[in-house]
Design a protein around this nucleic acid. Structure first.
Lengths: 149, 149
DNA sequence: GCTGTTTATATCGTTCACGATGCAAAAATG
DNA sequence: CATTTTTGCATCGTGAACGATATAAACAGC
């Protein structure tokens, strides 16, 4: 019966869960000075790529539903990073736009990816190995998305 | 200046974050019938390996602090899965023990790892590739733990 | 043994994450 | 064009996570 699969040590998902949590903690030194959280950073990444998007489009990119997005965006609006205006074509939509302040954070965020890489992956030589995880994670995410839909 | 590192598509951490979230969602079909959440499942994994542990020991294995553990364990106690008694040697400690009900869930959880594997990783042939992520995730977790301490 | 420090736990406040539900606008259907 | 369905967003409640802070017990140094 017991083949050891129920041991924490053998749990792939626990590693995923822990790595994700600890990773968010590692962002703190870089995000705290900007006054934002990791999910808020993700929203900004999406908006820096393309400004003025409806809530649902941002949610699709981040794979988050509106019940998560709405309060998140409300906090960001309160912090002066974005504005949420009504859509003109589709009046149900809320168009999320960067404020001057939200746009200005882009410059300050420039070195975050590089700094995170340096902080975490000490040996530059191992970088290639880690990058091999990307297609696997993408594959996993795709499978999980189908599973959860 | 803009080397594309601030694009969502190039974010390793976003993949980690998303995969962890979606993975927890994929556990729902298996954990809901047991009336537990994923973090509660992790606590049970630790207790099924060894019963009667102080809060801090469980926390160390899950890499969670007491400000997360205490409310989590309180909910599990309320649900009748565990009891929390005072330590005898060290009266500061709270010894967490499985109830009959908590122990009984072990049998019902036997097939969860296997079912999750089947549900997510469709091709059996790709299993080996995914398992190669484990040492990399472990390395990442160790680096992040040092970083966050 | 007394005092300063560390350890184990708890509480509070804030932010996420998400299931469930509601509502109005848009789209699809007959 | 009227009715049904879908879509976009919001709200509520619950369960994490986690920083900050508190408290009492254990421990260490003198």
């Amino acid at each position: 019966m017991d083949n050891g699969q129920l041991k924490l040590e053998n749990q792939f998902c626990f590693r995923l869960y822990s790595a994700a949590r600890l990773m968010m903690g590692a962002y703190h030194p870089y995000l705290d000075p900007l006054g934002i959280t990791y999910p808020q950073y993700l929203v900004l990444l999406v908006l820096w790529e393309q400004d003025k998007q409806p809530v649902c489009d941002i949610g699709k990119r981040l794979m988050l539903d509106t019940n998560t997005m709405t309060p998140l965006l409300q906090r960001m609006e309160k912090a002066g990073l974005i504005t949420r205006t009504r859509g003109k074509k589709d009046t149900r939509q809320r168009i999320v736009s960067l404020t001057k302040q939200g746009r200005a954070l882009y410059e300050q965020a420039q070195h975050i990816p590089e700094n995170m890489r340096k902080a975490v992956m000490i040996p530059e030589s191992k970088m290639e190995e880690f990058l091999q995880m990307i297609p696997l994670l993408d594959q996993l995410i795709e499978a999980l998305k189908k599973l959860n839909s």
